[in-house]
Computed example of a mutant assay.
Amino acid sequence: MTNSTTPSPALLAWACRALGARPAVTDVSHPRENSRVWRLDLPGSLCFYLKVSPKAVMYERETLALRSAAPALGAGGAPQLRASSAEDLALLLTAVPGRPLNEQALTPVEEAHAHRQAGALLARLHAAGDLSGPRRIEAEQALQAAGDGAEGHLAQAGDRLTMSEQKLVRELAEQLRLLPPLPIAYIHGDAWDRNLMWSTALQQAGWIDFERSRAATAVQDFVLPACSTWTDRPDLRAACLQGYGRNLTAEEQHALTCLAAIDAVSCLVWGPRFGDPHVTARGRRTLDRLLAGVFA
């Protein structure tokens, strides 16, 4: 979390003007240096979120997603953009009902229900974005771009990987270049349980945090669950894909394996850098599974 527990006076004044009232402010930033998010509570149980994006590209991606694609998810399926300030990289968002799925203790049946809805929402998002012009080119080149980034991750990870692990990652990254064209989509980009809201009262799922949304291959939206939630819960994978409306093709499954290797290296860079043992453990476990040939 940042040292600042409240928005700047100017930013708070901007939010007050947009809301037409002065809210109670609570810092709800993630425990990392560049996270700045506040919950704004108004009388009558009205709740909004004020978010300052860490980078201009993230602000642009989230703003575009919330204006163009996320409305296809329906009421409660995604935040609504109340106001935005390009100068401050700030977004004022409505609240999505419920709490993050990873913070809840649900029955296996409830979890499957949530993941089925999550898959259905991803299917809507994937079909909703504009994939014409430059975005289509971006999507068609997404796998090659992911493969190209592997070497940089390996350099940063250094001796956190063995020589055998480095060799495997390079081989899998190279195989991304050999795949035929895969289905493209407008993806969420950070689709895992931390960003999946679930309301037990409404029995409703919703996605938040669209700052990594972009045009890409559809399978790239399944890397994070494949490396985390799905590892021990094939039933949740089945539920999500059932909601999504189709299974992954053999080529998409192979791409998923290759992308998981790159994600693992990224985790072994990001986790230690930001002191997140859960992310580090995710990367280590993915590499172990890939070396053992049991990643699916």
Rank of each mutant, 00 (worst) to 15 (best):
M1F: 15
T5M: 09
S8H: 12
L11I: 04
L12G: 04
R17P: 07
R22W: 10
A24T: 14
A24I: 14
A24K: 15
A24E: 15
V25T: 02
T26R: 15
H30T: 13
P31H: 13
N34F: 13
N34L: 13
R39N: 08
L40H: 08
P54N: 08
R61H: 05
E62V: 05
E62H: 11
R67M: 11
A70I: 00
P71N: 03
A78H: 01
A78Y: 01
P79D: 15
L81F: 11
R82F: 08
S85R: 05
D88S: 02
D88K: 00
L89R: 10
L93G: 00
A95Q: 02
R99Y: 04
R99S: 04
L101K: 03
A105G: 14
P108Y: 15
V109A: 15
V109R: 15
E111N: 04
A112S: 09
A114N: 08
L121I: 05
L121H: 01
L131V: 02
G133Q: 10
A142G: 02
L143S: 08
Q144N: 12
A146F: 01
A150H: 01
G152M: 06
G152E: 03
L154E: 03
R177K: 14
L178G: 12
P181M: 08
G189S: 00
G189C: 01
A191C: 09
S199T: 08
L202A: 11
A205E: 05
W207H: 07
F210N: 09
F210T: 12
S213V: 00
R214K: 06
A218E: 06
F222N: 05
F222R: 03
D232Q: 13
R233E: 06
D235L: 14
D235K: 14
D235E: 15
A238Q: 07
C240A: 14
R246V: 11
R246Q: 14
E251H: 11
A255Y: 11
C258Q: 02
D263P: 07
D263E: 13
D263R: 05
A264I: 09
S266A: 15
S266E: 15
V269G: 10
W270C: 05
V279M: 10
R282D: 08
R284V: 14
T286S: 00
L287D: 02
L287F: 05
